[in-house]
Every structure is written in C-alpha cells, then in structure tokens.
Nucleic acid binder design. Structure first.
Lengths: 244, 244
DNA sequence: GTCAGCACGATTGTAAATAATCTTGGAGAC
DNA sequence: GTCTCCAAGATTATTTACAATCGTGCTGAC
C-alpha cells in the first residue's frame, strides 16, 4: 500500500546535501512515522501516547515528540488534553460521515481539475490502474482491489494539480483508517464501486469536467450511503443490551 | 469585525474554575492572538517572526511561542524554515484562486446542510443579516457591507452543523486576508454580490438543499472570477518593466 | 464495608542553559 | 575595486533540569 501522506509543512528543503541532515530530517521523519503508525492502525484509537515511550521508539528527543504531537493534534489525528497527554483520536461514525461528505466535494473538485489538467500520459495511467482493479475483482482479490482503489484516487488527485485540495484530502483520509475496509465488504459493493470508478475515468479521459465532478460525487455519495447503512446495521445488532 | 477563528484543537477545557488557569489558557490564548494578528494583517506577509520578540509581545515563554508557531505552520499560516525561523506565509494570487475554489465547494456543502438543518430562528437571523447588508449597501457603506458579508457566511456555516467543514473553512479563510477587500472594490460588484446572497438565503429558507448549494457555488464562483480578473489587470499594469 | 483524604509514582508543562546554525560586516589578497 | 574568507553577533535547535499536575492505591474513620 503506497505511502500517500504529505510532509508539506516544513517546506521540504531536501535534495541539496546528498548525505547528512542530522536534526531536521529526523523531526519530519518522526512526524511521518507516527502519522503512518496511526494511519495503519498500528496505534489504536484512544490509545494513550506517552512522550518518553514515543521518544524511545522514534529515536528522538522528547522535545521533538512534543512538536510532532502538536502537529498531529493540529490536523486532527490526535487529541491533546492539558496535563493528560495525547490520545489517538477516535472518530465516531457520525464524524466519519461528515469527513466523507467533505472528501466527496473535495475529490469531486479534484476530478474536475483532473479532467482539465491531466496529461495524456496521466490518463493512460488512470486507465491502467482501472484495468488492474478489474482484474483483481475478477480474481476476488478484495485487498488488491482496495489498493488499486487507493492508487486511482491518488493518481486523480495528482493529475488535478491542485495543492490546496490535495493537502486537505490527505488530511481527511488519514482520519478514516478505522473505516477503510468496511464498505468493500458489503455484498455487491465491489462491482458497483468498479462501475463508478469506470465512469470517473471515462469522464476525465473525455475531458468533461462537469461529468468528472458528478461521477466522483456519485461515487463517494455511494460510499457514504453504504457506510451509514453498515453503521445502522451495527448499532442495531450491538446496542440493544444483549438478551440474557 | 467578528472573531470567527476556532480554537478547537486543545479541546477547550474551560468553564470550570471561574478564576484562574495559569498555564494552558495562555498557550491557547497566544495561539489565537497570533493567528488573529496575522488574519488582521497586523503582521505582514513574509514578515519574519522572531521567537523572543513574540515571547515578549505575547507575555509567554519562548517554548510556548515555539509550539504556537508549529501549530500555525501546520495550518498554513506561517512557513517554518529549519534554522531560519518562521515567516508569515505569503499566498500568491494563484494560490488564492485555489483556496477560493476549495472554499467554494466547502461552503456550498455548508449551504446545503444549512438548508437541511437550520432552525427557524437561524433562518430569521440570516434574513436579518441580509437586510442589514442591503441597508449598508444603500448607504454606500462598503466596509459595513463587507462585515455583513462575513457575518452571513459565518451564520450559514453555524446553521449547517458540520464541524468538519467549519474547521476547514475557517482555516482557509485565514489565508485569504490579503485579498479580503479586493473584489468588493470592483465597480458594480457589491450590487451583484447582494443579489447572490439573497439567492442563497432564499434557497436555505425554502429548505432546498440543491438550490442552496448551487447558489453558494455561483456566488463564490463569481468571487473567484472577479479576483482572477483583478489579478490579471494588476499584472498587466505592474509587470511590464516600467517604460523609462 | 465504604468512602474521604492523602501520599507516592508517573507524566506532562515550563524554564533556563547550552549547542548549532545562519547572517552580516569587515579585513586582506589580488 | 572586487572578491573570498573569517569572525562576531543574532537566532534557532536541543538538551537538561525542575515544577506542576494527574492518577492510583493505601490508610483510617465511621
């Protein structure tokens, strides 16, 4: 599964000295590393993040850990409670729906821009990813399909050339880890999903911004709907105090 | 001009002890204060932010200043360059257009949600603000109109009950200080703007989500267009190496 | 047996000191 | 005169130590 996170903030001043960057490098690395750990689910929601432990784990000083936590707090991945430290933020299902709604309009914007700005080469790339997804689905490889899904969205955003949207989307995606594989497991959903993606790519390839935007909205609207439904189903089976 | 910023991050743990909160309070206050200083234009773009100066100005320790800068860096208001400190971020006109595009789709989402979720009381409030804007415009009070404009957008977002969108919009708005009053100065623009706002409020009052979303998009689309035009006009008069 | 109060360990928050880095200005070579 | 090199000042980065706070488990009164 591709990385997908962005460092962005500290205005990556890399590339120059090919060999050493003792301090700054590690700070950004630590940020990426921790962010990734949260995204991958390695650090569970509500898990307490103790500064000295993280310092040991990431091989950096406590001060660095502190600024990393502040950054992650600022983009909503952890919550910092005064005098009581940092916890991995648990996003509720209601919040997940909100986030998906925002992602929907942002990625729709990205799709629109992609239809305008994508190079022929990039469109070829989109088609290739789509083909791969089709194959994976035929092989009932849901995990592979899911990875293709992520790649496709990523490629569309890259083709859009819209840094602002890209940055925000990346931030939102990170918060949805917990729900990552939920919709794809709904019977019939993968086939439907593939169709939606096909529409999106077709619209971009046809250089039709309106259609691309609409297709992307339709797609993420379906995801939202599916998610709400599974959420409802869950609460219906879990909430009622289990009969003795 | 109303505040409009959100603290959000440190999970405001206020309300309890009515009198003192020596530490944490000041940290968040400092963040808000500096943020406000940037938003208000008091701190100019590209201005260098020296830690000890800010520490003196905000009456906090240098360590606090540091975390405040990290937070502001994370939400794109300042850029932090390793070993060279923090500067107020200058957003170019191209970036401003990007930001406006994103704001457009997000506020359109907010308008949609407002059409669904607004209380009767809130709709009354929207109407009242709109009336005030009309009056200000009749009096050629552009500044007053501009304030009303901000209030209206804020009220719509509040009525939408969509924390995720609200948070992101607030972050984006903060970056557009430099362009705040540019469009409203274009001849004929204020009257046009008022009409657009009227449409938005009407759609929300009619509880028509699609219309509300469309109206808001139309509105911010116009703002974007106007901004691009003034940008082009400017570069046409400024760029060409001035004739000797 | 339960609960208030308290002391201890663990953790976070703040401050100060030191190290590293950048910027600036000038001295000297050519 | 201009350029390179170097040193001093300014600023940021990191470490360290210390203070404040929270959570927990124990003691003892009722």
């Amino acid at each position: 599964m591709g990385t997908e996170g962005d460092a962005v903030t500290t205005e990556s001043r890399e590339a120059k000295s090919t060999v050493r960057r003792p301090a700054t490098r590690t700070a950004d690395e630590a940020y990426e590393q921790l962010r990734q750990a949260i995204r991958s689910g390695e650090l569970m929601p509500n898990e307490r993040l103790i500064e000295v432990e993280l310092a040991a784990r990431l091989q950096v000083s406590r001060a660095v850990v502190r600024t990393v936590l502040v950054r992650l707090g600022q983009d909503g991945l952890v919550v910092l409670t005064p005098n009581r430290g940092a916890h991995v933020r648990l996003v509720t299902e209601a919040e997940a729906v909100e986030i998906l709604q925002v992602r929907a309009v942002l990625e729709a914007l990205a799709a629109r821009q992609a239809a305008i700005n994508a190079t022929a080469r990039e469109i070829g790339g989109l088609r290739r990813v789509l083909n791969r997804m089709t194959q994976k689905l035929e092989q009932d490889d849901l995990l592979g399909y899911s990875e293709g899904n992520a790649s496709l969205h990523k490629a569309i955003i890259a083709a859009a050339r819209h840094d602002t949207a890209a940055r925000l989307i990346s931030g939102l995606r990170a918060q949805l880890v917990r729900f990552q594989y939920r919709t794809i497991l709904v019977p019939g959903r993968p086939a439907q999903s593939l169709g939606e993606h096909t529409d999106i790519v077709a619209a971009i390839a046809a250089r039709d911004p309106d259609a691309a935007e609409a297709a992307m909205r339709r797609h993420l609207g379906q995801v939202e709907l599916t998610l709400s439904n599974t959420a409802r189903a869950r609460s219906a089976t879990v909430n009622p105090l289990r009969p003795s």
